[in-house]
């Protein structure tokens, strides 16, 4: 009975069924991840720590055209340069006209989806490349408690983590044998 069932799967998903299935599974899990972040922050918005206040200050001052300054008017010179996370918040603030505190959790949710997708891609380049293994690996990332804590806060880690995953995706080309690499098309 397994052979005809396999044929049905092949017909349903085409010749590149495995390739399509893992991509589809990862995309679905990415949406689930973004949904979980939105669910966890739906009531009170993104969590705030002292660093978050600085990031929101920077986003507000950037959006209002005052540059990188605290609410006290003091320039931010010792924080990470360019302040990419507040810049992202400021950019969204400029487009929407809303205060960064209102939509920070939406930005976090949007940043969590790439984490899931990039994790899926990294698992795909690993030694166990079956769809089941990839889904299990990505699910572990999706339901990771530390990650869910990070993405419920207005922290720069939310942007830093996808950048590190992107870095790993490029760097793995140096340590994975060419026969195991997959095209990035």
């Amino acid at each position: 009975m397994t052979a005809p069932r396999r044929e049905v799967v092949d017909i349903a998903f085409g010749a590149q069924d495995t390739n399509r299935r893992w991509r589809l599974a990862v995309i679905i899990l990415a949406f689930v991840g973004a949904g979980l972040v939105l669910l966890s922050t739906a009531r009170y918005g993104a969590g705030l720590s002292p660093d978050s206040v600085c990031y929101l200050d920077a986003a507000r001052s950037l959006a209002s055209g005052r540059g990188l300054v605290f609410h006290t008017g003091e320039p931010m010179v010792w924080y990470p340069p360019l302040y990419l996370y507040p810049m992202l918040l400021a950019l969204v603030g400029l487009v929407t006209g809303l205060d960064p505190e209102v939509f920070a959790h939406l930005v976090n949710a949007a940043l969590f989806a790439p984490v899931i997708c990039l994790s899926g891609r990294l698992f795909k380049t690993g030694s166990l490349q079956t769809t089941t293994c990839i889904v299990l690996g990505v699910s572990a990332v999706l339901f990771s408690i530390p990650l869910s804590q990070v993405y419920s806060m207005a922290w720069s880690e939310c942007l830093f983590i996808p950048l590190v995953l992107l870095y790993l995706l490029f760097a793995q080309r140096y340590w994975v044998p060419p026969t195991c690499c997959h095209s990035y098309s």
Partner: peptide, 19 residues
């Protein structure tokens, strides 16, 4: 790889470890 590293450094100082 350069771009992702540079952006990571610009996001958090700990990104220097990626270099």
């Amino acid at each position: 790889m350069i771009l992702s590293t540079a952006l990571a450094c610009l996001t958090r100082y700990v990104g220097v470890t990626l270099v």
